[in-house]
Design a protein around this nucleic acid. Structure first.
Length: 135
DNA sequence: TTTCTAACA
DNA sequence: TGTTAGCA
């Protein structure tokens, strides 16, 4: 992430609803370095939108019968030094915005409706995200 | 209340 | 992968 940007993060509970994956699966993929979520000081995982999108790609590949080794060859390796993999400290805290269920819901609703000001990363997610509004 | 790690009737 | 125990 850059300078004064505000970054949104999700706890594993929200990511489970977003992806329809179990916590076990989400952590398992992390063990195999398919994703590397950030961590809070309390060791809790914090997932970015990018992580969620990657999980949806992983899920899609798993459903197609691809194993972990295969997925590693398809998806671009993650940099362990990227911001997402950085353990957030007190200083980066100001830029972190952990979303609650309702906040996320409102935010996604805006994106799915008005087209939004940032038509970037939600491409793959959009179809899958409709699920979030049924639950 | 939720998430985390480790381990398996 | 599911599920549970015992912590933080």
């Amino acid at each position: 992430m850059k300078y004064a940007e505000i970054w949104h993060f999700f706890r594993i509970g929200i990511v489970m609803k977003l992806t329809d994956l179990t916590a076990r699966q989400i952590r398992y993929y992390e063990q195999h370095e398919l994703i590397i979520p950030a961590r809070t000081g309390g060791n809790q995982r914090l997932y970015s939108f990018n992580d969620v999108e990657r999980l949806l790609e992983i899920k899609d590949l798993i459903e197609k019968g691809v194993n972990i080794a295969g997925i590693k060859q398809v998806l671009l390796p993650v940099d362990k030094d990227s911001e997402d993999a950085t353990i957030l400290n007190e200083q980066t805290e100001v830029k972190r915005r952990e979303l609650t269920d309702s906040q996320l819901h409102k935010m996604l609703k805006q994106q799915l409706l008005g087209g939004g000001k940032r038509p970037n990363q939600v491409s793959l997610i959009q179809g899958e995200l409709s699920r979030f509004f049924r639950k």
